[in-house]
Design a protein around this nucleic acid. Structure first.
Lengths: 199, 199, 199, 199
DNA sequence: TATGAATGAGACTTCATTCAT
DNA sequence: GATGAATGAAGTCTCATTCAT
């Protein structure tokens, strides 16, 4: 039984991965069940066997993306390192992940148009939780007197925007590797927060 | 003749404005010719009289948005004020404009999917020009010894990302007005560049 | 304008007539938009231009059938003839109409499964009104001392059932014409109600 | 072996009963193999193990319904009671049965659309036999000088129609129990046939 | 200029049916 | 005997687009 369930879970994940992939290239409306299926060498019918409709599949895709992000940042949070270090690691992890999946945007945009209200509630909850991790790090830094920021939420969203935007301009063939780029951006973004000597 | 042409131009602009509006709410695929037309109290046929197809209409919309942005920043560039001031004004103008139109994203994303290669060439040209304005300001600041940045292009894109992302999280009902928000963000983003005393 | 509206109304009616026709042969689920369209030498798209969806088209079909029936019986009601005569005429008209359209049943069955609650409300209202015409005739006959019946509603439904069932067994090739058959049935059904001498 | 066969027969009957049940609520096209199976806590595959296809299953359902009806009326026929009494009992039995199963209609309607010609031959044979029972009772009554009717077949079909229609209007919550209703209808329908004093 | 009827391609979805296990 | 994963045909519906008026 557990074996069978795992098989199903695997198949579902396989489909979700493909959905995320197509999604990242074609966008929500441009993604068709046909294309997802064909890429996996199955028929539409099979996809519908595992997911009741397109919305459900894309919702699950979004959930998987969000959960993975949350897991990453949660691990970083538990490490015994200075808060500046945590923030830096979080930024790097986020950028590397988003470049890996290349699908950050399509699903983030106008989710109200795409999902049901129950689905939205879950999605917003996860997003909030993720955002709050950043808030906590920033607040912690302020309390430790290494950061300064009048409006934590604004700073958090500046950081998120700068990170998410990366998929729109980073060219794989560029001079910098993903990791180098992520490191650089982390450094620049830290400058917004870090307190400097004189102050 | 010139009068007739102006009339046509006006009609086109009217349609483009509505297209931008619908686009900002429904996204590229979600925007239908029908809806654009109905909102303007005309029929689809009329829209097709002025624009040969949907792609052309949305392309013109994108062009209009980009040109207006360019105009704004060009005006700022010509002002006789310190470079920090110019950058700040540019950031504020960009954010206010993007919040005004709320359509920055849909068209910015994955333009390869939406436009023909000729159209893309024009779009990328305009985007580049816009980006270069920021690059120039940053470079100018570095030369004037008020900014510091190892990789101008990365910093430019951090700034663009942070600004564009605003549409995704700014709530009109919030405590801050658009202008206040724009000012705040401008201040935070400057921190990335501004050289501080000790250095 | 009125001309244009009439044109639309005509087209709609043409489609409705065909819908009723196909419906009477294939049943609700068996009726496809494709078949309705093809029979009319148009494409599905055209049908959808006039009716927003299948449900709406079949609902309009039902409404048309009911309204025509109501009109018939209303005309009979206003005639200055004895109540027995009215009932007889109503029965004959009903049977001839139902044999003409051959679609009485499919739409009458389980309407709850087919229509929205607003649509159902209208349908039930019309059905009730129609049934009440029969009730009124029966009651009138009782008051005039020519009919007798303890439970008017039961008798009404016996009559309706007997009439509607005709489509299930009447063979066009039979010895009796539609009119003869209708007359016969009317006579038999009257026996249920007519008071006989001795009583 | 006989045990095994009985087991199979039982399973088949179980499935048929559920098919009849679902059918009565959803209609022919609305009934899915999936729903029948799920309601029985089995899978579609199992249903297909016992019935080669949907048509076969629904055909068997129809046969079962018809055979049960036939059995009932056959028992009544053999009773040593006056013919009026037999007819009355037959009517009551029919109505009670049809209200019990609530599925009389869906399968009776347009069987040509649902079954193969071999299947149809059997169904029509059974229906005819059933109808003839009524014919025989009517004829018997005429010969016994208690009934009068010029066209037996028409009267038979009036009776069948009135009875079958009951499912369309009888409300379980009504003032009358099923039995009371059946009795009432039987009385009214008898009026069509019974000879009155003067004649 | 403007309309709106008509089209057709393509997307989503359902479901009877098969088949290997 | 029973299962359930997989399929494919068919149906509903949307929408960009055309064209005669």
């Amino acid at each position: 039984m557990s074996l069978k369930e795992r098989k199903i879970a695997e198949k579902k994940e396989e489909i979700i991965r493909m959905a995320i992939h197509v999604l990242s290239e074609k966008g929500y409306h441009g993604t068709t069940m046909e294309e997802i299926a064909t890429n996996l060498l199955m028929t539409k019918g099979t996809v519908y066997y595992y997911f009741k409709d397109k919305q459900e599949l894309l919702y699950q895709s979004q959930i998987m993306l969000l959960n993975r992000s949350l897991q990453q940042i949660q691990e970083i949070k538990q490490q015994q390192i200075p808060v500046e270090e945590k923030l830096k690691k979080s930024i790097i992890a986020h950028i590397e992940y988003i470049l890996e999946e290349r699908s950050g945007f399509e699903l983030m945009l106008k989710p109200e148009q795409k999902f049901s209200s129950e689905q939205l509630a879950v999605i917003f909850k996860l997003r909030d939780t993720y955002g709050e991790f950043f808030d906590q790090m920033i607040t912690e830094g302020i309390e430790a007197n290494v950061f300064h920021a009048a409006d934590v939420k604004v700073v958090r969203n500046i950081i998120l925007g700068a990170m998410n935007w990366v998929t729109q301009w980073y060219a794989e063939d560029g001079q910098k590797s993903r990791n180098e780029l992520a490191e650089d951006i982390a450094v620049y973004l830290q400058r917004i927060l870090i307190k400097t000597g004189g102050e």
